[in-house]
Design a protein around this nucleic acid. Structure first.
Lengths: 209, 209
DNA sequence: CCAAATAATGACTATTTGGTCACTTTTTTT
DNA sequence: AAAAAAAGTGACCAAATAGTCATTATTTGG
């Protein structure tokens, strides 16, 4: 059964959810076809089994962040809530890198067949992200941009960077990512006015007066 | 032939690239199966035909942005180069909304079969984005964050917002998106220090001293 | 050591699918 | 109008596929 899950995940990543047959999976796992159906009703069930743990951790983490933020009145509490989510994501990345990659790879496809649960999770993640942004917004902690826009932008940025990490694109030390993202999202790309163009500060901190 | 392209695109969006058969397409287009093979060698060829125009416009636009930025020494020139890319994207969105959606939906999947050209385009887009960021970075116009990180983050944010627009998620007036994105990316989410929490400015401009 | 329960097998069926091709219909050219 | 060219058709084939099930192998409990 573990052999089936592992083979399935590997093949899904290589060929896409819809590009893998039950025969492929059982052959790769080194078992007979009938064995697959002893453990999973169909391909969809296998995907759900793979996604389950990540789904729980992620949704729990985001809900906790929402609750924490509901009572946050200061910027520091907001940062702390965001950091907690980042920790959840990092944990999932370390425990289930393949599943996270599968999510990133399939989450924007049409919600059909084996992909429904993945797309459903993606919708929940986006909704939570917007809710969280909405809360911070209500408390006046954020710039006056529609939460639906900034929340989704952050989701997109984070997901793209996770993909880069998992695809081993060259983005430097992954451990520096949360800091870089924080700087990026919270303080923006643009060099703060007053700093001399050409003389870059190298410590990566915001450094506004 | 147009009927085939349109039916194919519609079905690809409904069921995913790998979830559509030639029979599905010809049936939806109301032609016989053999007719498909008169115009396209296989499904991959149809996808390439669909993607072609968008691919050209997008890559041309990004290359132009790179060239413009190569000579940019001031922040204003940089903004102008970004605005030009935004215009290209908006144009593609209006002319070929379905194809853009197909790109967003499939661009992170494994580069297999009919998806290879889409994934290839996605790689080029990311590479260009990082190159562009690199250029702006070299000129000292940006914060000291690795261009590979900030460039990919912007790609991710933009792609997620485009998906939202095309999926008719509620993000308000799409015409305000470029401005929101600019504010978001260039000036950051965080309320500038010095502004009173709770008293939000409503004009959406940065407003730093 | 034996019997019952559990797990694994792979041949088999019914369908689906990509691709072909001899033929018919429509359009263009002469 | 006749001939030639182009477009369109759908039956057909071989390969692939989801799912079943009678049979065999293995494990477990007494």
């Amino acid at each position: 059964m573990k052999a089936l899950s592992e083979a399935g995940l590997r093949l899904f990543l290589e060929r896409g959810l819809d590009g893998v047959t039950i025969d492929d999976i059982t052959q790769a796992a080194g078992v007979a076809k009938g064995t697959f159906y002893r453990y999973f009703e169909d391909q969809t069930a296998l995907v759900e089994a793979l996604l389950g743990p990540v789904r729980r951790e992620l949704l729990d983490g985001m809900e906790a962040c929402g609750r924490a933020l509901a009572s946050a009145r200061e910027v520091e509490a907001m940062f702390e809530a965001y950091r907690a989510v980042a920790a959840i994501i990092a944990s999932a990345l370390l425990q289930y890198p393949g599943v996270v990659r599968l999510y990133l790879q399939e989450c924007r496809g049409p919600a059909v067949g084996a992909r429904v649960k993945i797309v459903e999770l993606a919708r929940l993640v986006s909704r939570h992200a917007v809710d969280i942004t909405e809360k911070a917004h209500t408390h006046g902690l954020l710039r006056p941009i529609r939460p639906a826009v900034s929340g989704l932008a952050v989701v997109g940025a984070v997901e793209r960077l996770l993909l880069a990490v998992l695809s081993e694109e060259d983005i430097g030390n992954p451990l520096e990512l949360p800091d870089a993202l924080t700087t990026l999202v919270l303080d923006g790309l643009r060099l703060p006015p007053g700093t001399q163009p050409g003389r870059r500060k190298m410590d990566g901190r915001p450094g506004r007066p």
